Simulated assay, not measured.
Amino acid sequence: MPQARLAGPLSEGPKYGLQLREEFEARTGEVWPLNVGQVYQTLQRLERDGLVESDEDGEAGPRKGFRITEAGAGELAGREPAALAREPLD
Results as ranks from 00 to 15, higher is better:
residue 21 R to D: 02
residue 27 R to D: 12
residue 35 N to I: 15
residue 72 G to H: 03
residue 76 L to Y: 10
residue 41 Q to G: 13
residue 69 T to M: 07
residue 7 A to N: 01
residue 81 P to M: 08
residue 72 G to Q: 03
residue 83 A to K: 07
residue 51 L to Y: 10
residue 51 L to C: 01
residue 2 P to Y: 02
residue 77 A to L: 09
residue 24 F to Q: 05
residue 24 F to V: 09
residue 41 Q to A: 15
residue 60 A to F: 11
residue 53 E to L: 12
residue 83 A to W: 06
residue 42 T to V: 15
residue 13 G to W: 15
residue 54 S to N: 04
residue 27 R to V: 02
residue 68 I to H: 03
residue 25 E to N: 05
residue 51 L to P: 05
residue 29 G to A: 01
residue 17 G to E: 02
residue 21 R to T: 00
residue 67 R to N: 04
residue 86 R to N: 02
residue 33 P to A: 04
residue 14 P to A: 15
residue 7 A to I: 12
residue 41 Q to Y: 11
residue 4 A to N: 02
residue 77 A to D: 08
residue 48 R to G: 03
residue 8 G to L: 07
residue 13 G to N: 12
residue 63 R to I: 08
residue 42 T to I: 14
residue 57 D to A: 12
residue 31 V to R: 14
residue 76 L to T: 07
residue 25 E to A: 02
residue 5 R to F: 00
residue 26 A to R: 13
residue 75 E to V: 15
residue 6 L to W: 06
residue 48 R to Y: 07
residue 54 S to L: 00
residue 81 P to L: 05
residue 4 A to Q: 07
residue 80 E to S: 09
residue 23 E to F: 06
residue 74 G to D: 04
residue 44 Q to R: 12
residue 58 G to E: 00
residue 50 G to T: 05
residue 15 K to D: 01
residue 43 L to I: 14
residue 41 Q to P: 00
residue 35 N to R: 02
residue 83 A to T: 08
residue 19 Q to L: 13
residue 73 A to N: 04
residue 25 E to M: 09
residue 28 T to S: 08
residue 77 A to Q: 09
residue 10 L to T: 06
residue 41 Q to S: 15
residue 2 P to A: 03
residue 34 L to N: 07
residue 19 Q to C: 12
residue 79 R to F: 15
residue 8 G to A: 08
residue 1 M to Q: 04
residue 71 A to H: 01
residue 46 L to Q: 05
residue 20 L to R: 00
residue 64 K to E: 11
residue 12 E to P: 00
residue 12 E to I: 13
residue 9 P to N: 05
residue 66 F to H: 14
residue 57 D to T: 07
residue 49 D to P: 00
residue 80 E to F: 03
residue 58 G to Y: 02
residue 19 Q to F: 13
residue 88 P to R: 10
residue 25 E to T: 09
residue 60 A to R: 08
residue 82 A to F: 11
residue 52 V to M: 05
residue 64 K to L: 12
residue 57 D to S: 03
residue 33 P to K: 03
residue 82 A to L: 14
residue 49 D to R: 10
residue 45 R to C: 10
residue 63 R to E: 12
residue 2 P to Q: 07
residue 32 W to F: 14
residue 62 P to M: 15
residue 61 G to A: 04
residue 88 P to Y: 04
residue 23 E to M: 03
residue 85 A to L: 01
residue 70 E to Y: 11
residue 90 D to S: 07
residue 61 G to P: 01
residue 52 V to H: 06
residue 75 E to L: 13
residue 70 E to P: 06
residue 37 G to F: 15
residue 21 R to W: 11
residue 80 E to K: 10
residue 29 G to L: 01
residue 16 Y to W: 09
residue 41 Q to T: 15
residue 79 R to L: 14
residue 25 E to S: 05
residue 21 R to Y: 05
residue 60 A to T: 04
residue 15 K to N: 06
residue 62 P to C: 05
residue 24 F to I: 09
residue 43 L to A: 09
residue 17 G to A: 11
residue 47 E to T: 07
residue 15 K to G: 04
residue 51 L to N: 06
residue 35 N to W: 13
residue 76 L to M: 14
residue 72 G to W: 04
residue 61 G to S: 05
residue 12 E to M: 12
residue 55 D to H: 11
residue 5 R to K: 11
residue 55 D to L: 13
residue 83 A to L: 12
residue 68 I to G: 03
residue 20 L to A: 00
residue 53 E to K: 14
residue 35 N to D: 15
